[in-house]
């Protein structure tokens, strides 16, 4: 007994303090792990990520997205505690190295979280896009969900790399070129549709003509059958004209009185 207490007395106080800090860090980390798990489950994260490829992958290794995020936060706290303990223990030659690691640690943590969230969101976006395109039975549209997924992952990787301090300007240029291409091509392809949609909103809100009215839009004259956001359907003798709403603003409308 006396030998043990003698041994304890010989331990320098810094070392005891360091050990205490590590223990506290472990306990705190474990608590944060539990609380995070609860909070994420309560926030409905398991339902939100259900069915995504990331969730399926981690499930196959016997884990879940929530567990991984919660554990990540735990190891983050433990790592900080260990660093603090080492600096308290005052091991001089580690000083400089430790300072660098301590600076990098939070960023690494954020980068990991961003990557996980990015992958999950990418899967979710791909699912949503393919769900929306379900009615279109053309094999070529299969590329759209994939494109959407990799776009989101690319952005997530970019943010994560920037967090850890890797130079990302080249990747950023690539991203902006990609985004600009999408905007340019999109506005080219959807120009008429957008113009018709804007005109259609006006038509639906103020209803200058309604179903049953006889109108002429440009050279197309007949009875209005249907007004939708994009087109107006007009019946003439034996033919149904589908007129883009854009034309209403280009040519104006003539409404004939029924009496």
């Amino acid at each position: 007994m006396a030998a043990v207490s003698e041994l304890l007395a010989q331990v320098p106080p810094q070392l005891a303090l360091a050990a205490g800090i590590v223990v506290i860090g472990l306990v705190l980390g474990y608590l944060v792990n539990r609380v995070n798990r609860r909070l994420l489950t309560r926030a409905g994260v398991p339902e939100a990520v259900e069915g995504t490829a990331f969730e399926r992958t981690v499930r196959s290794i016997g884990s879940s997205t929530v567990a991984i995020i919660a554990e990540l936060s735990m190891w983050f706290i433990v790592a900080i505690a260990v660093l603090a303990a080492l600096s308290v223990a005052n091991i001089a030659y580690l000083e400089r190295f430790l300072a660098a690691v301590a600076g990098l640690l939070p960023r690494l943590f954020v980068a990991a979280i961003v990557l996980i969230v990015g992958v999950v969101v990418a899967d979710k976006v791909a699912l949503m896009v393919s769900e929306g395109l379900k009615g279109v039975k053309v094999p070529q549209v299969g590329i759209l969900p994939t494109a959407a997924r990799y776009t989101v992952i690319y952005v997530a990787v970019l943010i994560a790399l920037a967090q850890v301090g890797v130079v990302t300007s080249a990747l950023l240029v690539l991203l902006s070129a990609y985004v600009i291409a999408i905007i340019v091509f999109g506005s080219l392809a959807f120009r008429d549709l957008l113009a018709s949609g804007a005109a259609g909103l006006y038509l639906l809100l103020s209803q200058p003509y309604g179903i049953g009215d006889e109108v002429a839009i440009g050279d197309d004259r007949g009875i209005v059958q249907e007004v939708t956001v994009f087109v107006t359907r007009i019946d003439t003798d034996g033919a149904e004209l589908v007129v883009p709403n854009r034309q209403v603003f280009q040519h104006g409308v003539v409404r004939f009185r029924s009496d």
């Binding site: 049953g212 006889e214 209005v224 059958q225 019946d235 029924s258």
Partner: peptide
């Protein structure tokens, strides 16, 4: 065929769906 139906009918009162 609402356009044609509207032209073959008349309102009895104000249209609540106007």
């Amino acid at each position: 065929d609402a356009g044609k139906v509207m032209n073959k009918s008349r309102p009895l009162s104000y249209n609540p769906f106007e």
